[in-house]
């Protein structure tokens, strides 16, 4: 008898991905879908697709899906979660969507402690529109709209999103992962699963940033793109857990916030 060792997660439809060869969007989709399978929550989950290369995520995930305007995913997710507190709601967004046009929605959903899970694909570029400068493009990075390299005096500095969000009281889990190796893929999976578990437990807002590649617009082969990611992105965007209120010993963001407020009131560190 043959044994199935690899099959499509139930939470992915059989629609073939529209992603370029070697693009890490596909891996992350799979990790999210495996998580929905393992937690048995596909039937109660609603996902929000962004505007960006993953705009068609609503065709790939088998759970109920909503397509949101560019940058508005977390406002839409807020509406969904407030309307259906018992359901699981996640948003899947690129760096242009989440960290540029949708910054206000991102920050405020986080500070409100919306019990949603955000999967943030940081590929340092606008993929869908053909490789323009992103808020996360690195200093000196050449893109279609920074042809001489990102000049930080002109274009400003790249945003370290999870670090920034980790200062907010509503955030239960803020972690940066990558998917460049089997080991890191396993770690990413663990983080994504934890984020969904925290949501189910009602701990608070959870965000997993996945340092990703865009071989097409970086003009590199998939393998070279992974190497470029290791050489250039990981030093600027270090992997790690930036906030985890449960690991700090709190049941949820409200407990963590009042402890922080007390610490500050008594002259301690945030």
């Amino acid at each position: 008898m043959s044994k199935v060792v690899f099959q499509r997660p139930h939470a992915l439809t059989d629609t073939p991905f529209s992603y370029c060869p070697g693009c890490t969007h596909g891996i992350v989709h799979r990790l999210v879908a495996e998580t929905l399978d393992e937690l048995g929550i596909e039937g109660t989950t609603v996902g929000v697709a962004p505007v960006g290369c993953s705009v068609l995520a609503y065709e790939f995930f088998a759970c109920d899906m909503v397509q949101a305007a560019h940058g508005r995913a977390l406002a839409v997710a807020t509406g969904l979660k407030r309307a259906m507190p018992e359901n699981v709601v996640f948003a899947y967004q690129g760096d242009g969507d989440l960290a540029s046009i949708g910054t206000a929605e991102t920050v405020h959903a986080a500070t409100r402690g919306e019990k949603i899970t955000v999967i943030f694909i940081n590929n340092a570029i606008y993929g869908m529109t053909g490789g323009q400068l992103a808020p996360t493009s690195l200093p000196q990075q050449v893109t279609q709209t920074s042809p001489y390299g990102r000049d930080v005096n002109e274009a400003g500095f790249p945003i370290r999103m999870v670090e920034m969000l980790s200062t907010l009281d509503g955030v239960a889990l803020a972690q940066r992962v990558t998917v460049d190796s089997p080991k890191n893929v396993r770690a990413a999976k663990k983080a994504i699963k934890k984020a969904f578990e925290y949501q189910v437990e009602g701990v608070g807002y959870t965000i997993i940033e996945v340092v990703s590649t865009c071989p097409t617009n970086w003009g590199l082969s998939p393998a070279d793109a992974l190497q470029w990611l290791r050489d250039n992105m990981l030093p600027y965007y270090p992997l790690g857990v930036y906030r985890d209120v449960k690991a700090e010993g709190y049941a949820n963001v409200a407990e963590a916030a009042s402890a922080r407020a007390q610490r500050l009131a008594s002259g301690g560190d945030a």
Partner: peptide, 26 residues
């Protein structure tokens, strides 16, 4: 019910979009 003061009108209408998609009167 839910009263939520959004961060902007843009966010507010998109919250309506979400709650409406969930089938609720918003």
């Amino acid at each position: 019910g839910v009263y939520l003061q959004a961060e902007s009108e843009i966010a507010a209408i998109n919250m309506v979009y979400g709650a409406s998609a969930a089938g609720k009167r918003a």
